[in-house]
Every structure is written in structure tokens, then in C-alpha cells.
Design a protein around this nucleic acid. Structure first.
Length: 661
RNA sequence: GGAGUCGUAGUUCAGUUGGUUAGAACGCCAGCCUGUCACGUUGGAGGUCGCGGGUUCGAGUCCCGUCGGCUCCGCCA
């Protein structure tokens, strides 16, 4: 083939032409999305990243076919010699197949009453008089356009041919949305005087936090770099260097198991500023997200986001990243339950909490997003929900179902605990009926805000288990019952995170955020006591940090903290974490040194680009907002990575592999 | 590391109690068709039922193991 484009130059994209261009000569280039062949009349839906335009090949206006022409013999498409003949030419348009790449030149024609309402370009079509076949294509291993996403080919097939899957308009849209988001982030921080600084990808491994990806050094045989889990220390060093305001779109790596919203490599907006307190940081979080959501999605978030402490979030929602698009807050039954003789209620380490599913009689007219239809709560779905909470360590899920008839029964006997006749007690049904009896159940009902028609779901157990179980159940039910308003965006800043997490196996405290997070001023004394007085060590569990998260629609989109800038507090923290000064020096010596040379108070946050884009794109899967993602088992099915390495290459690095037989 | 779930034509799926030659739709190939846009129509090709083993006269179907996709727990900001 010669110079395939010849003298043609693209004048428009396939999503661009409108009635106003009617009459003009245009050149379009793109992929054959579909062909409708009538013999003497051929329609082609021509697709590029911008859209689809219908191209018409007719014998009376289609005169020139450039270049070499394909022929199909025994299913094998090959090129033949050049033909430039008008009637012959049309036949050649019939050789076009899906995903052939072509250029066409022609006139824009008004479709009149043949408009296609489903197409942005539907009011026009292009009558081709020149066709240039730029490339052929094999039949695709799966169909790009199918009715309904549930009919898409299996994801592993699509991941193997990711470059084809990316041709789908949905993924095209998501990836471009992501580009817009990153651009909006840069806009925001550039505008506000932040300096973009790149930090190294080859760092040093540290045992804290997630598992590192390790890179061997050839020059220093036997030694290894580690890829950044985040540029945490380096961005703090830029503060010590006096850059004052830093940001970076930073690739991060964590060698941990994957989830629907977690990949081994991901991108975060990383920012840090000097002379900042929590409020300064909150303002930047709000400012950045508000700018991005407005620019990218035209979505207006509140100028000031609601704030909630970690403790309150856990108490009300059983989660540190509550989805505020729906209600269903957790109710506390612990006090009432204590008065009831029932082993799970009595255990002193246990709390008893519940969620109330609001019932409604008029199923047809229920308001989506507010009210649940308890008529759907069958025996089986209650069992389902119990299975669900058990995954989080709950021993069981008790239920109390209050019939609508309870309305009249409760009003006839205002104090039903004593007076309701046995034959009327059937208005309440419960998995605890046998164990507790009607009167005790009634006390529990009274301790909630449940009304006739509602279902109460109860979990008793250790505080952390109850929160995890009910917090997850709340979201699960909202999804199953379609209680979530998909057009709503509910941001939240969660504050006062605990400084430490307790590891029950080793009875040690680990950094909840990271080891450079500052404790809250109010808790500094407690912190000091806990570290210095062995007997008060447990107080570490109560120390709160100047750490915060940004949560949108139940996703943790950003997290950050005010850092420790004083070396004695930092030393205290290492001690709390059970790290000797020597081992701290080995790992972070350079950083401890740096802290002693005039470190300004500073803090910042990091925002997950993918999670933010997931919300903007309305998807629950991180792979939908990444161009080339990995599978749940951390493999790339397209390039088949990770792969083995040549023996000589390993030898040069002084590395041998040990494989389990 | 653990649990759940799925795996049948290129794709999405159906496949009865274990029983003849494993079906449908879309896609693909060939023919016809000048206004389609989910074109229509006629005909055709296309299968290691993920893989391995077992039970059985007989396995897509039952059993055991294994591999892979997805989701969740553990793990992970």
C-alpha cells in the first residue's frame, strides 16, 4: 500500500454534523459500526470517538474508490488491484465489514422525514462519492454493541481484548470523563498557587502499611527498590523544603488483594500545604471536589460539606464512610436489651443495635428512596440477610415484624404490654417470639422508632462486629430495595479518626492512618500518659488524630491529616507503635533528621482519582474508569502479566526463584 | 488464606429424572433486495459442554479434584 490517506484530510468527526452543514462537502474517517446492504444502496454507520454518522453509498453519486480494493475469497479478505469505476465501485462498498477503517468524502444531505431521533447526527447523512479503505478488520471476538449491559460478553473475554472493549461508547465516555477530572484538578490547584512536583517511583521498602511491590537493583545486587504506596514522606519533605503548597497526580502501588473498587496500581491526587490546620484542609477538599464535580459533571455540591466525627458516623451508620443518600440509621437497643434476660443481650461486652425498615401499605405509590416495602421481606430474604450479616462476624440477625393491624390493636390498648389479649398478639411476629415472648418484644419495639408495618432487624455482639454487620446491611438493603436516589450526591467530611487501631491477636496498636499523623491537641495528654505509663497503654485506643476523610455517596474519596512536625511528638508516636528509636532511625532516619531542621506545621490529603471517577460515571466498578485494569487475581489478561523473566535477566540481578512444588 | 457464584457455538443463553445426531437468538459466510437505521429475506458453516479423574451399559447433567472470571471476608487508606 502506498500513502493510504492520499490527499484526503478529515474535515469533521462522526458526531459533529448537523443540519447547518447540509450541502457542504466533508471528509469523515472512522470505523464501520454497521452496514445495511440493499444491493444498489448501502448504508454504513460510521463511528469514531465522537459519535456515529450514517453514510450512504448510491450508484448514482458514488463514483470513486481509491486505493486497492479488497475481495473476499473463502472468507479470506485480500487486496486486489486498483479499480476506479463508478458502477464497480458501489459493489466494493459492499465488501465493507464491521470495524473496517475507512475514509469517505461526500455531501451532507438533509434526511428530511427520514430523521433518526436516536442519533445526535440523525438529521443528516453523508452521500459518499469517494471511499478509501484504510484498513480491514478480523471479525471481533465479541460484539461491541448489544442491547443492555447484561448481554455484554463475559468480562474476561473483554479484558483480553481490552483495546476493543474500549471502543464501546460507554468506556470511551468514562475514560474521557477521567481525563476531564484530572484536568479540572490541575486547574484547581494551579489556580491556587500549588506547585506540581513529581516524586520518585523507585523508593525504599518500609514494613508499615500495605505490602510493597519490589524492584530489584542490578547495580546493587541483592538490594531492592519499592514502588510507592503513596508519596507520603516525600510530599512532607517538600513542605520542609519550603514549597509551601504541593500537589501531584501520583501513581500508587499496593500489593494487596483486589476489590471492586481496589486495584494494585491506582492514581491519587496528592496534596500538602504548610501552615494548615484541619479547617484549611477541609476547605481545600471541598474546593477541589466542588470544582471537579461542577466542571466534569455539572454537579453542584454544597459550598460547605456536612461534618461528622468518626464516633458519630460509627454510632449512627455503623460505618466511617456512610452513604447519606438514604436514611435507615442504626438504633441503639443496648440499654433496653440489658433489662431482658436473654444471653446475647446480657453479655457485658455486647451491644445491641438495630435498623428499622419502614413499611408501607400502598406499594404502588411508595416514594423511591424513602420507604421499604416489607411485603417483599419473605422468609427467604430474611434468611438471606442473616447469611449476609454473618460474613461480618455477627452470630445472627433477629427480626421483629409488626403487622399493619397493630395500628388498631395498639390504639385500643395504649399500654399493650400488660393488656393486649393473647389472640391479638399475632400482630407482632418475631424470630425472638419463642425466646422472649410478646411483652419483652414490645419493650424492644418501644425503644425503636418503629411503627405498624415496619420490620426491625437486630444484631447483638461486640461493638465493632455490630457496626460492621449493620453498617453493611444498611447499604445492602438500600441497594436491594432500590432506596438510593441515583441522581443525588451526598458529600461528607468525617473527622477525628482514632489515632490507633488495636490488633487483638498481638495486643498491639498500629497507626490507623500512618505514623506521621498528629494526635488531636485535646488528646495529647492522654497520648503522653498512654505511652509513658505501661499500665495506661489501653488509652491509646481512645486517642483521636487530626485525621479526616472525604466521603461521597458511601465512597471514601479522599483521606488526610495534619502531620506531626515536632520530633518529640514523632518519637512518642514511634514508641506508641512499639517501634524502637533504632528501628525508626533505620527506616525513617532521613525523615527524622529533616524534622529537626525547621519543619513548618503542615497537612494535606490524597484523593482517589478512580473512586471519584466512579461516582462521576455512576459505576460501582473501578475497571470501568481505568483504561487497562487487572483482574481480581491481579493479572492483566491482555498482555498476560505478571510473566516469567528470562533466567539470564534474573542471574544479572542475583535473584533466584523458589516455587512451591 | 477463606466463602459464595458462574464456566455449553465467535457472543449471550436454554438444555427435563443420567438416554437417539447438544438447541435458540445475535454474530459470521453466500445469494436476493433503492430508504434502512435491531433492515428484510433464502440458504450455509460453526461445539474438546473450562480441564483432569471417577461412578454408570450410557455423563453437558451425578461425585471428587483442579483452573479461570466476578463478588465478599481477611488483608488494604
Amino acid at each position: 500500500m502506498l500513502d493510504v490517506l492520499g490527499s484526503l484530510e478529515r474535515t469533521h468527526t462522526c458526531g459533529e454534523l448537523r443540519e447547518s452543514e447540509v450541502g457542504s462537502q466533508v471528509v469523515l474517517m472512522g470505523w464501520v459500526a454497521k452496514k445495511r446492504d440493499f444491493g444498489e444502496l448501502v448504508f454504513v454507520d460510521l463511528r469514531d470517538r465522537d459519535g456515529i454518522t450514517q453514510v450512504v453509498f448510491k450508484s448514482d453519486n458514488f463514483v470513486v474508490v481509491h486505493d486497492e480494493l479488497p475481495t473476499n475469497e473463502g472468507g479470506q479478505i485480500t487486496f486486489m488491484g486498483e479499480v476506479v469505476d463508478s458502477s464497480e465501485a458501489l459493489n466494493k462498498a459492499r465488501f465493507l465489514r464491521r470495524e473496517f477503517v475507512i475514509a469517505i468524502k461526500g455531501e451532507v444531505v438533509n434526511r428530511g422525514d427520514k430523521k433518526n431521533e436516536d442519533l445526535d447526527t440523525g438529521e443528516i447523512e453523508v452521500h459518499a462519492d469517494e471511499l478509501l479503505i484504510l484498513n480491514t478488520s478480523r471479525v471481533l471476538p465479541f460484539q461491541l454493541e448489544v442491547a443492555g449491559s447484561e448481554n455484554l460478553a463475559a468480562e474476561d473475554t473483554r479484558l483480553k481484548y481490552r483495546y476493543l472493549d474500549l471502543r464501546r461508547p460507554q468506556l470511551q465516555h468514562n475514560i474521557r470523563m477521567r481525563a476531564k477530572a484530572v484536568r479540572a484538578i490541575r486547574e484547581y490547584f494551579d489556580e491556587r498557587g500549588f506547585i506540581e512536583i513529581e516524586t520518585p517511583i523507585l523508593l525504599k521498602s518500609t514494613p508499615e502499611g500495605a505490602r510493597d511491590f519490589i524492584v530489584p537493583s542490578r547495580i546493587h545486587t541483592g538490594k531492592f527498590f519499592a514502588l510507592p504506596q503513596s508519596p507520603q514522606i516525600l510530599k512532607q519533605l517538600t513542605m520542609i523544603s519550603g514549597f509551601d503548597k504541593y500537589y501531584q497526580i501520583a501513581r500508587c502501588f499496593r500489593d494487596e488483594d483486589l476489590r471492586a473498587d481496589r486495584q494494585p496500581e491506582f492514581t491519587q491526587l496528592d496534596m500538602e500545604m504548610s501552615f494548615a490546620n484541619q479547617e484549611t484542609a477541609y476547605r481545600e477538599i471541598e474546593g477541589m471536589f466542588n470544582h471537579v464535580f461542577e466542571k466534569v459533571g455539572g454537579i453542584e455540591l454544597p459550598a460547605e460539606w456536612p461534618r461528622m466525627t468518626y464516633a458519630e458516623a460509627m454510632r449512627r451508620f455503623g460505618s466511617d464512610k456512610p452513604d447519606l443518600r438514604f436514611e435507615m440509621e442504626l438504633g441503639d437497643l443496648t440499654d433496653t436489651a440489658r433489662t431482658i434476660e436473654f444471653a446475647p443481650f446480657q453479655a457485658t461486652e455486647n451491644v445491641v443495635k438495630c435498623i428499622v425498615l419502614k413499611g408501607v401499605k400502598d406499594i404502588e405509590n411508595r416514594k423511591v428512596g424513602e420507604i421499604i416495602n416489607i411485603h417483599d421481606i419473605s422468609r427467604k430474604s430474611l434468611d438471606d440477610l442473616e447469611e449476609f450479616v454473618k460474613r461480618y462476624g455477627a452470630k445472627g440477625l433477629a427480626n421483629i415484624r409488626i403487622g399493619f393491624e397493630a395500628e388498631s390493636v395498639f390504639s385500643e390498648w395504649p399500654d399493650p404490654a400488660d393488656d393486649i389479649p393473647e389472640e391479638k398478639q399475632g400482630v407482632v411476629k418475631s424470630s425472638l417470639m419463642k425466646a422472649l415472648g410478646f411483652n419483652k418484644l414490645y419493650r424492644l419495639i418501644n425503644a425503636t422508632n418503629a411503627t405498624p408495618g415496619d420490620v426491625i432487624l437486630i444484631v447483638a455482639g461486640r461493638k465493632s462486629v455490630v457496626a460492621a454487620a449493620l453498617g453493611a446491611l444498611r447499604v445492602e438493603i438500600a441497594k436491594r430495595e432500590n432506596l438510593i436516589d441515583r441522581s443525588a450526591y451526598k458529600p461528607l467530611i468525617v473527622t477525628e479518626f482514632p489515632m490507633f487501631e488495636h490488633d487483638e491477636v498481638t495486643d498491639r496498636y498500629t497507626a490507623a492512618h500512618h505514623p506521621f499523623t498528629s494526635p488531636m491537641d485535646e488528646d495529647l495528654e492522654k497520648f503522653t500518659t498512654a505511652v509513658n505509663d505501661e499500665s495506661q497503654h489501653h488509652l491509646l485506643g481512645e486517642v483521636r488524630a487530626k485525621a479526616y476523610d472525604a466521603v461521597i455517596n458511601g465512597y471514601e474519596c479522599a483521606g488526610g491529616s495534619i502531620r506531626i512536625h515536632q520530633k518529640d511528638v514523632q518519637a512518642l508516636n514511634f514508641k506508641a507503635l512499639g517501634m524502637s528509636l533504632e528501628s525508626a532511625r533505620t527506616q525513617f532516619g532521613f525523615f527524622l533528621d529533616a524534622l529537626e531542621f525547621g519543619t513548618p506545621p503542615h497537612g494535606g490529603f490524597a484523593a482517589g482519582i478512580e473512586r471519584t471517577c466512579m461516582i462521576l460515571c455512576g459505576t460501582e466498578n473501578i475497571r470501568d474508569v481505568m483504561a487497562f485494569p487487572k483482574t481480581a487475581s491481579a493479572q492483566d489478561l491482555m498482555m498476560d502479566s505478571p510473566g516469567e523473566v528470562d533466567h539470564a535477566q534474573l542471574q544479572e540481578l542475583g535473584i533466584d526463584t523458589i516455587l512451591d512444588a
